[in-house]
């Protein structure tokens, strides 16, 4: 009976394991194998085994270290901005005011706009000659001359981050708002009767209630942000002077622009290892809290 049961489970799991093995498991192993060779994009000559040479070169490559810094800074800035802005907006939309349902419905707009569309939209807004941002700031008297937002080394990354926050804060806000709506009014009323001020009510009732769902939003956003590729690539291609080149863009360029597959794979593996360390810290943090 037991063995018959086991067969059933395996059969039901089989389609998923098959698909996962084909498009996830096998390529991941192959990436590791590739990283130990000097394979080129076009197989002109047979690749040879080079051991850990790619990794040693990779860890000493200043360009790659800079790209890791770009990814780290990007993740840190956008995720913290999105968490703060998203929580603030959720609190605002939980207050009673006229037209609240309409504004709540609008909140889904930035989330629903595809990432590439968001990228080209902000590219048009940031356009150095005819962009809306320059024109608006100039007409309001904030600017004396037009600025090349995506073309200058010190502004490009910040401009891209601003565009990312516009799209993704709305996810945090929607998750936080959904959680606020499950907070019973009676708790807040009871605290008011006990003489708790607005800050105390937020600190001791609202925030603890919000934290589990904010944690979900935080994890989802960090996972997305550390592997950022598309919004930066469409807006700047990693330029100017590689100032917006993230780790994912670096790997892509190494493997497909410079045609060095082996070395690109090694960079990908380094990136994966760093993300695994990040996940391990998160899981450890969770299990410590449960104790």
């Amino acid at each position: 009976m037991a063995s018959r049961g086991t067969r059933w489970y395996t059969l039901l799991l089989a389609p998923m394991i098959l698909v996962m093995g084909a498009v996830i498991g096998w390529p991941l192993i192959q990436t590791f194998v590739l990283s130990l060779t000097d394979t080129q994009l076009m197989d002109v000559s047979a690749p040879s085994f080079v051991g850990f040479e790619n990794f040693i070169k990779g860890l000493g490559n200043q360009g790659f270290l800079d790209a890791l810094k770009v990814s780290g800074l990007f993740a840190l800035v956008v995720v913290s901005s999105e968490m703060i802005l998203g929580t603030g907006v959720a609190l605002l939309l939980n207050e009673p005011f006229r037209g609240r349902n309409l504004v709540r419905a609008l909140l889904i707009l930035p989330w629903a706009v595809p990432t590439t569309v968001n990228a080209i939209m902000w590219r048009l807004i940031y356009n150095p000659e005819y962009g809306a941002l320059n024109s608006l700031l100039f007409q309001l008297g904030f600017l004396d001359s037009y600025i090349s937002w995506l073309g200058s080394a010190d502004k490009a990354l910040w401009s891209v981050m601003f565009a990312d926050v516009w799209k993704n804060f709305s996810l945090v806000a929607m998750i936080a708002l959904a959680s606020l709506q499950t907070l019973p009014d009676s708790q807040i009323e009871a605290a008011k009767i006990d003489g708790a001020g607005a800050w105390q009510r937020f600190r001791y009732i609202t925030l603890p209630h919000l934290i589990p769902s904010l944690q979900v939003a935080l994890v989802l956003r960090i996972i997305e942000a550390v592997k950022v590729f598309d919004i930066i690539y469409v807006m700047t291609k990693g330029g100017p002077a590689n100032k917006t080149r993230s780790a994912s863009i670096f790997v892509y360029q190494e493997a497909f622009t410079n045609s060095r597959m082996g070395s690109g794979a090694a960079y990908a593996i380094i990136m994966v290892s760093l993300i695994m360390i990040l996940i391990a810290f998160y899981i450890r943090g969770l299990s410590r809290k449960e104790k």
């Binding site: 996972i223 892509y252 990908a268």
Partner: peptide, 16 residues
């Protein structure tokens, strides 16, 4: 696997 970057799979998939 949801957490890993697409570049981790993309190279062998491209070759295949």
């Amino acid at each position: 696997t949801f957490m890993l970057p697409p570049v981790a799979y993309a190279l062998p998939l491209y070759r295949m």
